[in-house]
């Protein structure tokens, strides 16, 4: 890996900084994993209602998905297993970078399907009060932060993989 900004280098972080970042990663992973599993075990769950209520620029696309049964089943499947796998990876620190990017993409889709902009209102009630910024966006930016401050190699399977690769390379040399 090439040299990054000094502050973004895990090696320069204090123990406290590392712990906070890893905790954030694990908690977001926990949330993803439970969102996925809860949907998996609920036979009635479908993204149709959420998609059908979509507003803003991409609503046409989302409504199209909601009204096409085969596509909807596929999207539901990808969503559920995406959430579960991303959650597991974030908790374990496995393929952290890929999982983080996938999580950002998923959250971005949730956000643009139903952004809390002034002038848009939704049939499905929100559990809080939001204007432009909602919890989806905050979780998304938290993942972006984890992308900027990667923690997979501080504490996670990625570190072991990295070490094995590096020592393998050393041994060959």
């Amino acid at each position: 890996m090439t040299q990054g900004a000094a502050a973004a280098e895990p090696g320069r972080w204090t123990r406290f900084q590392s712990i906070v970042l890893v905790t954030l990663r694990i908690l977001i992973g926990w949330h993803f994993l439970y969102e996925g599993l809860a949907k998996l075990v609920n036979p009635y769950w479908t993204s149709a209602d959420y998609l059908a209520g979509s507003q803003w620029w991409f609503s046409g696309l989302f409504i199209n998905i909601a009204t096409a049964p085969t596509l909807l089943t596929l999207v539901d499947y990808i969503n559920v297993w995406g959430l579960i796998l991303i959650g597991l990876c974030l908790i374990l620190g496995l393929l952290t970078r890929t999982a983080t990017v996938a999580g950002i993409v998923l959250l971005a889709l949730y956000y643009i399907a139903a952004p809390p902009f002034a002038g848009l209102s939704y049939a499905m009630p929100a559990e809080g009060s939001y204007l432009v910024v909602n919890k989806v966006l905050i979780e998304l930016v938290a993942l972006v932060a984890l992308l900027a401050f990667p923690t997979g190699r501080i504490l996670g399977v990625d570190r072991v993989i990295f070490q094995m690769r590096r020592t393998g390379a050393l041994a060959q040399a």
Binding site: M1, G4, E9, P10, G11, R12, W13, T14, R15, S18, R153, I154, R159, V160, F162, Q163, M164, R166, T167, G168, L170, A171
Partner: peptide, 19 residues
């Protein structure tokens, strides 16, 4: 990145490359 690790994050590996 890992090359600059300070003590707190220094990985402990033996020469055989085993974790």
């Amino acid at each position: 990145d890992e090359g600059t690790n300070t003590q707190s994050n220094q990985p402990a590996t033996d020469k055989a490359g085993i974790v």
